[in-house]
Structure formats: structure tokens, C-alpha cells
Design a protein around this nucleic acid. Structure first.
Length: 139
DNA sequence: GCCAACGTTGGC
DNA sequence: GCCAACGTTGGC
């Protein structure tokens, strides 16, 4: 299983919105960046990801699961853009902010810390376990 | 709200 | 195919 991180501005699509979708989940549409798209194309069913609030909040608030493989983005006719569906699994034991993550040497190579602009990004197993441990979250 | 970083577009 | 101009993201 691989691990990922999904960014969303909570004003547009928040963790609460995601939770409200239940096990049906929601299409992660609107990504118009090749790197982020390629990450989604590489995802497998059951892969897990952190749900991160960008712009407002700047913190990881929950864990999601890939529940549909990459497919055409229903919000555009442009066939270049695909996306997966994700569903909420559980909130993190507590939120962890970007500022806090920057203070953890174990996370110094995390994409989130080094490339602020990639909206769908990989997370290493070590990073995943570290963040789960620190926040009291079942991995 | 500002602006740095980055990605994309398009003229040449 | 290069690169300047432009647009967008997202931290601050």
C-alpha cells in the first residue's frame, strides 16, 4: 500500500464535506497539474492519504482512502485530466500544522514541507507512521 | 492581501 | 525547442 497527501482549501472542500460523503466518497476533481494527476494515476484501491487544509488551517486533519481508481475528471471535457475518488476513514487524533511538521527532523524531506504547490503528493511510509504516532492516530 | 515559487502557454 | 510572459497556488 502507498501513502499520499491531498490538499484542499477548506472554504472549497473541507474535511467535514468529505466526511459527509460517507463511504460513497467523492471524486477528487479539479486537479490541473500533471504531476498531481500522475500521482493519482499511480494510486491503487485501498491506498491511504492524509487530508490537508491549505490556505486556511494549514494542517492535516484526517485520513482518507482511495475508493475508485483514476478515471476521467467529470468536471472537464479535456481528456488529459483524470482523478480518483476518496472517502474519509477517520480524523487524526489531533490536527498537526505545517509549522509543527517543519520542526520535525523526521519530516524534513516531506514534499509538503519542500514543494508547497503540489496538491496531490506522495508520503513515505516513515513519514506516514511518524505523523500518525505524533498525532495519536491509528495508521 | 501580498508575493514567491512554480507550472503552463505561446511567440519566435 | 527555448524562454519570456502570464496565471495560479498557497504560505505568510
Amino acid at each position: 500500500m502507498a501513502y499520499w497527501l491531498f490538499k484542499s482549501e477548506p472554504d472549497v472542500w473541507s474535511w467535514d464535506d468529505q466526511v459527509a460523503k460517507g463511504d460513497v466518497g467523492e471524486e477528487w476533481h479539479g486537479v490541473r497539474n500533471y504531476q498531481a494527476r500522475n500521482n493519482m494515476r499511480a494510486m491503487k484501491l485501498g491506498d491511504r492519504g492524509f487530508f490537508y487544509h491549505s490556505r486556511t488551517g494549514l494542517e492535516i486533519v484526517g485520513i482518507v482512502e482511495v475508493c475508485a481508481l483514476s478515471h476521467p475528471d467529470s468536471t472537464t471535457e479535456d481528456h488529459r485530466w483524470d482523478c480518483v475518488d476518496i472517502r474519509a476513514v477517520r480524523p487524526t487524533g489531533r490536527a498537526i500544522t505545517l509549522a509543527e511538521m517543519k520542526n520535525h527532523p523526521e519530516l524534513e524531506n516531506m514534499v509538503l514541507v519542500n514543494n508547497t504547490r503540489l496538491s496531490v503528493q506522495p508520503v513515505s511510509v516513515a513519514e506516514w507512521l511518524h505523523i500518525c504516532g505524533v498525532t495519536g492516530t491509528e495508521p
